[in-house]
Design a protein around this nucleic acid. Structure first.
Ligand SMILES: [Mn+2]
Ligand SMILES: [Mn+2]
Ligand SMILES: [Zn+2]
Ligand SMILES: [Zn+2]
Lengths: 135, 135
DNA sequence: GCCAAAGATTGGACTTTGTCTAATCCGGGC
DNA sequence: GCCCGGATTAGACAAAGTCCAATCTTTGGC
């Protein structure tokens, strides 16, 4: 689950992303933890030891990683976007009390009866969110 | 699809909501149109003829309606919450280009292989979003 | 119908998440 | 070592939503 510096560099290079110090820090937080994190959590984590990455860079980098297909967004909380280092098709369990997100394998959860799309439209993805809470 | 004034009053009364003028206007926009609308669209629609409802009231009212189970939120767009007058279990087709939302009947779309929940947790709902785009 | 109490509405300040910009910084290639 | 294009940055800005204290409406008891 932990990535070495040059594994991270390889990950970025593979997508044509120049591996700067800040980008590597952000990639490390995302990939080594393997969690679903919001931008402000990433900002905090990346500056934990010693501040060196700005808010603007965190947002720039997350948008870049997303556009390059390195990570994906998870839209479950109206207050903030979560970023997911797992880009394989899969679904989510969302704890509405704690805002914790857990993966559900796409093999386990199967949807049937997909409607036919209006002509000229293509499916970009199917997201299933199981909202759970205590009690 | 259009609701009379006293049908709307009955809808609110059934949930214990006092039917004020502003609440009836907002309920009318939601239920008579039967669309998925964001708060600012509702604010515009409700003040189309003659301004009489404030932003604060629109938000207060949508939160109240949601808490009373009269409407539900649809979380698909990181920029804004959409409000859905249909509280029956159902799913959504989301056009990522236009932000248009269309219903998919829960009878058509079926999920199997729901994971067992962590002990002490209950499912609050299962939301499926099919993201589509042109081309 | 009238009146007070309870509840609803309001403008505007405030918060939060995210974007934009123009200035500076940096590092890989020569 | 220098250069230059790309990356980073502080801080201004924008949009969605919340909060507050003052004011206005609704409502139920008479
Ligand atoms: Mn560091
Ligand atoms: Mn009116
Ligand atoms: Zn995930
Ligand atoms: Zn719907």
């Amino acid at each position: 689950m932990s990535y070495s510096r040059h594994q991270l560099i390889a990950l970025l290079r593979k997508r044509g992303i120049a591996p700067t110090h800040q980008r590597l820090e952000i990639a490390n937080v995302l990939f080594s933890r393997g969690e679903h994190l919001a931008a402000d959590q990433i900002l905090t984590l990346v500056n934990e030891r010693h501040a060196e990455t700005s808010k603007a860079t965190v947002y720039n980098t997350l948008n870049l990683f997303r556009d390059c297909g390195l990570i994906r967004e998870v839209i479950v909380d109206p207050k903030r976007v979560f970023y997911d280092p797992n880009t394989e098709p899969h679904h989510h369990l969302y704890n509405v009390d704690t805002s914790e997100i857990t993966d559900i394998s796409a093999d386990d959860l199967v949807v049937s009866g997909m409607p036919e799309l209006p002509p000229g439209m293509v499916t970009e993805g199917v997201d299933i969110v199981v909202r759970i809470r205590a009690l």
